[in-house]
Each structure stands twice: as structure tokens, then as C-alpha cells.
Design a protein around this nucleic acid. Structure first.
Length: 428
RNA sequence: GGAGAAGUACCCAAGCAGGUCGAAGGGGACGGUUUGCUAAACCGUUAGUAGGGGUAACUCUAGCGCGGGUUCGAAUCCCGCCUUCUCCGCCA
């Protein structure tokens, strides 16, 4: 949600800022609604003030034995008038709300305009591994080593699902344990939220109303504000944890992380190049989340990016960090860095973490504020989220980057305590 | 799943046969008097918030779980919903 006051005062500035993400918007209608809204309020409140005053006087007049029937009739008239005005007001406020709800966040000043093609690689870590043999792709590797069962995954869950089996499950679980351990070391609080969320959660996060088609809804409610859906990311839960709250300045920042599976429809995105576990309807992710003071969110974003990178580095995997161009940032976010991991068989880098600063965009939608210690004033806080990490591309990267000529896979050192093996071999 | 009860400000809690009730009382917090210091005692302050108008002082509107309705007037009456608690049943 953008601040309507900002649009009211500088419509052109906001329009140009949104244009950076190739989003065209015209505020003339909005501004006329805004004008109308305020004039209705001014007029109806004046009527209400009068009505309140007279209504208060009526018992006294009655006590004095005066005839108040004229007054009652007058007040009835005013009451009816106010009612009509309030209907009008609600109508125009709905229009304003719907308009504002659909607007994406304003990109930060240092975010470059345009689409994906303008993303900038900020830094890279490691080198592309060179193989003295013909490397296999991750689908073949995890299948031959018995780590993932794709066929039976589809059999029991339908297209886009897989099953982690045996050492594969251990390897997956080891990754999650590794991430969790690191976040706890860094002072983040571990959270396990519900996986079913209410409509309001999706609204606050910025997924609704525009992207409601991307999530799995469950049957219980058809009406928008009663429906529940399965979370597409733990971010959706964590942003709502402090919804409608006023935190104290000294309690910020709040640093959380959560593990949840993530469920996404991914409708229409089944591309041949994305076979395997690169894109599925369900994947495991540990998500970091921060609520910060506005003046600290920039540093917090850097911290999150470094934390995500450190996790990939700890695994010894070649990757790079990209700063996204305006259009490639998701709607709620003002600035985003992606950590992208090298997948040899695809000859490409794939996102394993997206680290974003939403500034006050989500806080406005969720009405999440804090109180300044000195001035006692309330302000919207800033929220940030970063994957740390999603496993569904880390595991392919591990098996591909660590594969050996005999088809076995070396287990990254940091995972060995949990996997209990240092190498995984193909089944006969 | 079935049956009851309840949701009032930071917390507890009165009000609920509609009319100075934006709300008694207590606790807490804050300020003060007293005091060598602390405690106690006493006095005082204490909705927060959102929105409208105004350069401002200030002023008005909304608000007693949420949303509607009745009425000149609703914390109080009516309807719908949400949440919590208790009891019964069922179950990992």
C-alpha cells in the first residue's frame, strides 16, 4: 500500500517512480475520488456534530416539559441525510482502497528501471566446476542414487510433486538443519507458523487481491474474507505475526526465521528446462524475516543478503548475487537481491534466495507500526524477508556440482553430521 | 461435532429495564508533596488510534470484539459473524 498523501502531494513523482517498473498509472481519477471523499466527510461530520448536540439536549428539554416533536422530526431528517452520505462515502472509499491495493511498491532510488534484462550481477563466489568426464544432470543423479522418487511422487501427489527417499530425505533434512543452526547462531528467533492462512494474511503480504490465483485455496470459505489458503512462503505468515500491532522502538529490530513447506500453483510454468525439482508445487524453505526501524532497513537488507550468501558459501557452491531491476522485483518489494546458484546441466544460475526490502509497503497493508521512544509518535515500520534458503534448487546444485566420475556424490562437509555419510553412491 | 457463558481503555472490573457514559471503581504507569535515602501515605495525570477542518492554539467525527439494523439518541435493544472459556462427545 502506498501512502495516499504522497500521491496527493506528488502524483507525478509517484507515477514516474512506478514507471521504472514499467507500470503505467494515471492518478486523475483517484485524486478526484479523494477530493470527493473529503468533501463528503466534511459535510456529514458537520451534520453529525449538530445532531449529537441536539440529541443531548432533548432529555433536558423534555424534563422541562417542552414539546420536542418538531426537533425530533428535524433530527430524523438529518439522520436520513447522513445515512445517504455515508453510503456514498463507503462507495468512494471502496474505490480508493481497491485502487491503492492494486498498486505495487515504489522501487528504491538505486534500483535500475526496466525488466530482468537489466538485472545486475553484484558479485560471484567460486568458479564453475570443470568436469573431466561427462557430467550428469540432477534428475539422473538423484534417481540413480535413490535420493528422489519422481514417478511415485507424481503417482501420489500428481504432476509437480516428488518424494525424498532414504538418503535423499536425510540430505534434505540436513540442509534444513544446517540453515536453522546458522540462524539461531545469528540471534534469529525460530518460528513454526500455521500453514493455513486467512485471506487477510495474503492481503498484508501483497499477494492478494492481485495474485490470489497463484495459491491453493481450501474449500471452507468461498467468500474472500473467509477463505483460507495454504501458504506459498513463510513470509506470508511472518509478516502477519505483528499485524495490527504497535511495537516499541527499543524492541526493534525483530529477527525471525521459519521453516515451512511452500505451496504454489505455478500454473502454466511447466517448462521442459525446469524438470526435476527446479519448480514444483511444494518445496521446503527456511525464511528469514525482519521488522526494523525505517532508518535501519537498508543495513538489514545487506545483513540478510550476506546471511543467505554465507549459507551457500558454507556448502561450497558456486553462485552469484544479482540486484534486480525494478520490474523484476515482486509487487510488494522496493529492492531485491537474488542469490543464484549454478546448475551445470542447465548452464544457468537459478534462484535459491530472494532478499527484499518492502520498506513500509507491507506495514501499511498490515497496519504494523512502532512508537518512537522520544516523541511517542507512531510510524510504520519496515519489513524485510529473505530465503535462507529454499532447498529445491540447492539440492540439485549439490548433486551436480559435487558429482564424481563414478556417479557418486560427495556430501558437503557442513551437512555430514546430519547425513552421517560423506558420499552417496548410485544404487546397482 | 453438541450444549452453555463471555468479549468494555495498559490490566482487572462496574454499567446492559436506551438519554451529560468516552464510560464508575481498583491496580499499574507517570508527575508531585513529604523525606537523610528508600518505602509508606497523600495529591494529581493517564485512552490509545484513525480521519476531517485550521499556519497554529485548537476543533469536530468515528470508536465499549467485528459488521449490519431499530431510534431524534445505542456500551445498553434486534440480527449476522469472529474469538475465548467451561462441560459433553470424538480423536492424533
Amino acid at each position: 500500500m502506498l501512502d495516499i498523501q504522497r500521491i496527493r502531494n506528488n502524483p507525478e513523482e509517484v507515477r514516474l517512480a512506478l514507471q521504472k517498473r514499467l507500470y503505467e498509472v494515471d492518478f486523475t481519477e483517484l485524486l478526484s475520488w479523494d477530493q470527493k471523499r473529503r468533501s463528503i466527510i466534511a459535510e456529514s461530520e458537520e451534520l453529525k456534530a449538530r445532531k449529537n448536540k441536539v440529541s443531548n439536549d432533548i432529555p433536558m428539554l423534555k424534563k422541562q416539559g417542552k414539546n420536542v416533536s418538531d426537533l425530533l422530526a428535524q433530527m430524523k431528517e438529518i439522520s436520513d441525510k447522513v445515512k445517504v452520505m455515508e453510503d456514498e462515502l463507503k462507495e468512494v472509499e471502496d474505490k480508493i482502497f481497491n485502487f491503492l491495493s492494486a498498486l505495487p511498491n515504489i522501487p528504491a532510488d538505486d534500483v535500475v528501471p526496466g525488466g530482468k534484462e537489466n538485472n545486475q550481477v553484484v558479485r560471484t563466489f567460486g568458479e564453475k566446476p570443470q568436469f573431466a568426464f561427462t557430467p550428469k544432470n540432477h534428475v539422473d543423479l538423484v534417481t540413480s542414487c535413490g535420493l528422489i522418487d519422481y514417478d511415485r511422487g507424481v503417482k501420489i501427489g500428481g504432476s509437480g510433486f516428488w518424494v525424498y527417499t532414504g538418503d535423499g530425505a536425510l540430505l534434505e533434512w540436513a540442509l534444513l538443519n544446517y540453515f536453522i543452526t546458522e540462524h539461531i547462531k545469528d540471534g534469529y528467533q525460530f518460528m513454526l507458523p500455521p500453514h493455513l492462512l486467512t485471506y487477510q494474511c495474503g492481503y498484508t503480504a501483497g499477494q492478494f487481491p492481485k495474485f490470489a490465483e497463484d495459491v491453493f485455496k481450501i474449500e471452507t470459505g468461498e467468500v474472500n474474507d473467509r477463505m483460507q489458503f495454504i501458504l506459498p512462503t513463510a513470509e506470508t505468515a511472518l509478516i502477519n505475526y505483528h499485524r495490527d500491532e504497535i511495537l516499541n522502538e527499543e524492541d526493534l529490530p525483530k529477527k525471525y526465521f521459519a521453516y515451512t513447506p511452500c505451496y504454489r500453483k505455478e500454473a502454466g510454468s511447466n517448462r521442459a528446462e525446469e524438470r526435476g525439482m527446479i519448480r514444483g508445487h511444494q518445496f521446503n524453505k527456511v525464511e528469514m524475516f525482519q521488522y526494523t526501524l525505517p532508518e535501519q532497513s537498508e543495513d538489514a537488507l545487506q545483513e540478510l543478503v550476506h546471511k543467505a550468501e554465507k549459507l551457500v558459501q558454507g556448502l561450497g557452491l558456486h553462485h552469484r548475487v544479482s540486484k534486480l531491476a525494478a520490474q523484476d522485483c515482486s509487487a510488494s518489494m522496493g529492492k531485491t537481491y537474488d542469490i543464484e546458484i549454478w546448475i551445470p546441466s542447465m548452464n544457468d544460475y537459478k534462484e535459491v534466495s530472494s532478499c527484499s526490502n518492502a520498506y513500509d509497503y507491507q506495514a501499511r497493508r498490515g497496519n504494523i507500526r512502532f512508537r518512537r521512544k522520544d516523541s511517542k509518535k507512531t510510524e510504520f515500520l519496515h519489513t524485510l524477508n529473505a530465503s535462507g534458503l529454499a532447498t529445491s534448487r540447492v539440492l540439485p546444485a549439490i548433486v551436480e556440482q559435487y558429482q564424481q566420475e563414478d556417479g557418486s556424490i560427495v556430501v558437503p562437509e557442513v551437512l555430514r553430521p546430519w547425513v552421517g555419510k560423506d558420499r552417496l553412491y548410485p544404487k546397482k
